[in-house]
């Protein structure tokens, strides 16, 4: 069990999302950066898509009401306060064992987003196959709302695992975001497409889990087709352009259908990067084909597997090294003996 002491900014619970209900208007939801969620969970000794806290800008302060192990993926400035009021820093990209009544303060985030996972997961009801918070319909997480002070959530079941660390934190890719043209590329003039590919866009203040509205050059629609379509399916990554010519990149909580033409769609391998794009962040786009998108998807999966495989036990004394040293000493001793 944990108790939330302070949650100044909206924090949601997210897991692998809620697929299978989009025909009934239920968004996919789930972690904006599924790779970092998987890393946080691996550090905490959980399966990759276990529900965790998704945190932007500043994370909550919480108290462990029983011993538990939690893990951070992201650039937090976290600290652990013990019962005597002594505080020590808690490093990122590793798990931390808390004793009963210790307080964990996530602090501010230097990365755009971060995840706090707890060993054994958070004990929350599954709603339509997922524990992800979807605030607009008030489902998932804690009654579909943001975390607040006083919340108590079951957590920390099972034996505490060995603390783990990730030696080499993952890099957030840079360079232009890769897109596949369409599905409504034809609704835009060639001049608008050229601008879309050449120009730099900036994430505006209108940015949440549903999407990012971008500032930058206006993208003109083909005047014979206009800026409205009869709604069709949308997906996270789709870049829709309403009549004002300002693109919106859709994210995990986007609606299931939309009535604006979509000039292009960010490929799955680059979706995690959008999670880190805060207001003011600049973005560029580059067109790729489906083969390249598929290759990128495979590469991302391989890299994530390798990243998780590199996680090490974080022991104060490296027992493996000690054993190895003893063995060598033994050999040397034996040589001396002969």
């Amino acid at each position: 069990m944990i108790e939330i002491l302070d949650a100044a900014l909206p924090v949601s619970f997210q897991d692998g999302g809620r697929p299978g209900y989009r025909h009934l208007g239920v968004p996919l939801s789930g972690a904006l950066d599924a790779e970092w969620l998987a890393i946080a969970n691996a550090l905490a000794g959980n399966p990759a898509a276990t529900v965790a806290l998704e945190i932007r800008l500043r994370g909550p302060r919480l108290r462990a009401l029983r011993p538990l192990t939690l893990a951070l993926a992201g650039e937090f400035s976290a600290r652990i306060e013990d019962a005597a009021g002594q505080s020590r820093p808690a490093a990122n990209w590793r798990s931390h064992a808390l004793t009963e009544n210790e307080v964990f303060d996530c602090g501010f985030l230097r990365s755009g987003i971060g995840y706090l996972a707890v060993h054994g997961g958070f004990d929350l009801p599954t709603v339509l196959g997922s524990r992800s918070t979807y605030a607009r319909a008030g489902i998932g997480g804690i009654d579909g709302r943001a975390l607040r002070a006083g919340d108590r959530i079951g957590a920390g079941a099972g034996e505490p695992p060995t603390p783990m660390r990730l030696p080499q934190p993952p890099q957030i890719g840079d360079g232009p975001l890769r897109v596949i043209a369409g599905p409504q590329r034809e609704y835009f003039t060639d001049a608008a497409w050229a601008k879309f590919i050449d120009a730099e866009f900036t994430v505006s203040r209108e940015a949440d889990r549903m999407g990012l509205r971008l500032d930058g050059p206006q993208l003109e629609h083909d005047p014979t087709l206009g800026a409205d379509i009869v709604s069709d399916g949308v997906a996270p990554g789709a870049i829709q352009v309403p009549g004002d010519g300002r693109p919106i990149v859709l994210l995990a909580d986007c609606q299931t259908v939309g009535g604006y033409p979509k000039i292009a769609t960010v490929i799955a391998a680059d979706l995690p990067r959008l999670a880190h794009a805060l207001p003011g962040h600049s973005l560029r786009f580059v067109e790729v084909d489906l083969e390249q998108a598929l290759a990128a998807r495979r590469r991302a999966a391989t890299e994530l597997t390798a990243c998780i495989a590199s996680i090490l036990a974080d022991r104060p004394f490296d027992l493996d090294a000690l054993y190895a040293a003893n063995l060598i000493d033994g050999v040397i001793d034996a040589q001396h003996a002969t």
Partner: peptide, 12 residues
Amino acid sequence: ILALGDGALTLE
């Protein structure tokens, strides 16, 4: 058939 990224297709 329209491509909606690399993880979805739309039959229009």
